[in-house]
Structures are given as structure tokens and as C-alpha cells.
């Protein structure tokens, strides 16, 4: 009896030891692969940074390309004095900020209505919003191209080759998802809160501005980030709809104008790329958690 108990406790101790051992092993391999993947995943951005600090002489020299031996800021200075690049940046910034504003103005009230008030077809509309989000831009750019030409014939306004045309088309990419995640945030707010507000005599607009927007602020931040990144990073629409150098936004400007001809000024291209990648990276560095919460809420709740 005593012996049996003793062996049992021995076995338990041994097993506990092996659990601790396997935990240590799991930790080791986790760190090992994490380091490996971080190196792989960060290699291109690192190379972007390294190249942007090189002079064109060093880029073509036969030395280790993964390191910069004589760092210089001439590529950045060159870009800042290049009027085209400043225009790209300004266009990108204006377009993105307008798209964020428009997306919020459309999706916040709509999400509120869909999450809290029932009206004819509201359930269908909620599903429709989600389906719209799934329609890719590569399906819509050709009809848009034609529609803009068609509108020019009717109204006399030239839509194509103007940067502001992007402010019209980008909301189709941002609004559905913004509305979708805001619906799930608004729906998670306890109903007692709006009952209390109604009893206190608040109208629906006050209910939205005084209760829903402050309480669902994390969701609104997530939606704002999404709208901004979509507008900042998109490539297909500006490539299809804008061509003149003064109408381009950053991604297309960097890819098409800095590469023209046989001379690839890689130092400058990489410097421009880094400047273009910086705003989203900075935003994510500070607000990553909001965005991830919104992203996973969008797919799991709803």
C-alpha cells in the first residue's frame, strides 16, 4: 500500500518534471523559430533602410549589399527638393484624410442604425455590407474607368487623371469594413445605456454622439486606421485612373516616376519607399492593439 502510494507519487513527480522539461523545450523552439521568422520578415524593410542610406556609387560597388559603409542622407534630401515627390506626398495625405473623414461620416451613423434600430430591409443591408466588403477592387476598376469617361461626356467634368477621383472611389473599399466592425462594437454596448438615455429624453442623434461614439471609441479608432491604411496604400485605382506626374499618389509615384528610363536610382526609390511606409508603421506602432481588436471583432463577432 505505502509502496504503491510512493511509486504513484514518484511517477507524478517524474511526470511533472517532464511537463516542465517539455515546456522548456517548447519555449526554446518557439524563440528559435520566432527569431528565424523575424529575421526573414524584417529582411526586406531592413534592406530598404540600408539602401536608402547609400550613395549610388556604393550601391553599384561590389561590397556586402546588406550593410552601409558610408551612410549618407543625400537620397532623402534629393527627394525633399524634388517637387514631384512633395506633390505625391501631399496628394496621398489629402486623399487619405478626406477618405477617413468621409468613411467615418458614412459608417458611424449607418452602423448605429443597423446595430440599434430596426427598419425595413435592415437585416439584408447588414449582410449586404459584408458582401460588399468582399468585392475586390480588381473587379470594379474597369467599369469605373468606363463610367468616368461616360460621366465626362454627360457633365463635361474630367474625372480621369485627377487625384480627387480617388476620394470618390476609395470609400467603396473602406466604408463596408468600417461599418461592419462598428456594428459589432455598437451591438456590444449594453442596451440599458440607451434605454436610460431615452428615458432622460435624449434623441437618437444625442444618443449616438453622447453614448455610442465615446463608448465605442476603440472601434472607431480601429475603423479610422483601416480607412487610412486602405487609402494610403492602394495601388490599383491610382494606377488605372491617374497618369500625369502632378496627379499621382505616393505608391504609384514612387513605382512609376522614380523608375523611368534605364537609370534606376535605387537609393532614392528606397528612401521614397521608406517615407511612404513610415506613416502606417508609426500608426501601428502606437495603435496596433486597437486595430487588432477591431480586425478580430470584425471576423468573429458581428
Amino acid at each position: 500500500m505505502a509502496a504503491a502510494v510512493e511509486t504513484a507519487s514518484h511517477i507524478r513527480a517524474a511526470r511533472r518534471g517532464s511537463i516542465r522539461g517539455s515546456r522548456r523545450k517548447a519555449l526554446f523552439w518557439s524563440y528559435f523559430f520566432l527569431v528565424l521568422f523575424v529575421v526573414i520578415f524584417l529582411a526586406p524593410p531592413f534592406y530598404m533602410l540600408i539602401t536608402s542610406l547609400k550613395s549610388s556609387g556604393e550601391i553599384s560597388a561590389q561590397v556586402n549589399p546588406w550593410w552601409v559603409f558610408h551612410p549618407t542622407l543625400e537620397n532623402y534630401l534629393g527627394l525633399l527638393t524634388e517637387p514631384n515627390f512633395v506633390t505625391f506626398f501631399r496628394n496621398s495625405a489629402v486623399v487619405s484624410l478626406c477618405v477617413v473623414a468621409i468613411s467615418m461620416l458614412i459608417s458611424v451613423p449607418a452602423a448605429f442604425a443597423l446595430a440599434r434600430m430596426k427598419f425595413w430591409g435592415s437585416a439584408t443591408l447588414a449582410t449586404g455590407v459584408f458582401l460588399t466588403y468582399l468585392i475586390p477592387e480588381s473587379l470594379l476598376f474597369i467599369p469605373f474607368f468606363r463610367i468616368f469617361a461616360f460621366l465626362r461626356d454627360i457633365t463635361g467634368i474630367e474625372f480621369l487623371n485627377h487625384w480627387w477621383v480617388l476620394i470618390i472611389v476609395y470609400p467603396t473599399l473602406s466604408v463596408p469594413f468600417c461599418t461592419w466592425i462598428l456594428i459589432s462594437y455598437f451591438a456590444s454596448i449594453p442596451k440599458e445605456l440607451d434605454e436610460a438615455a431615452l428615458i432622460d429624453g435624449a434623441g437618437y442623434i444625442q444618443m449616438l454622439t453622447k453614448i455610442f461614439i465615446p463608448v465605442a471609441l476603440p472601434g472607431i479608432i480601429a475603423a479610422t486606421i483601416f480607412a487610412f491604411t486602405v487609402a494610403w496604400a492602394d495601388f490599383l485605382y491610382p494606377l488605372a485612373f491617374t497618369t500625369s506626374a502632378d496627379q499621382l499618389v505616393l505608391p504609384v509615384g514612387i513605382v512609376t516616376t522614380l523608375i523611368k528610363g534605364d537609370v534606376y536610382n535605387w537609393g532614392q526609390i528606397m528612401a521614397g519607399s521608406l517615407i511612404c511606409a513610415a506613416p502606417p508603421l508609426i500608426i501601428y506602432a502606437f495603435l496596433m492593439d486597437y486595430y487588432i481588436a477591431g480586425l478580430t471583432a470584425g471576423a468573429t463577432k458581428g
Binding site: 524584417l42 526586406p44 513605382v255
Partner: peptide
């Protein structure tokens, strides 16, 4: 650190 590749605009990382 693992998210950086996803945050950079795809057009920009493609050119890199």
C-alpha cells in the same frame, strides 16, 4: 515585429 511586412503598403514592399 512580425506584423511589419503586413503594415507596409504592398506596392512599396513589392518594389523593395
Amino acid at each position: 515585429m512580425l506584423m511589419v511586412s503586413w503594415v507596409i503598403p504592398t506596392a512599396i514592399s513589392s518594389i523593395t
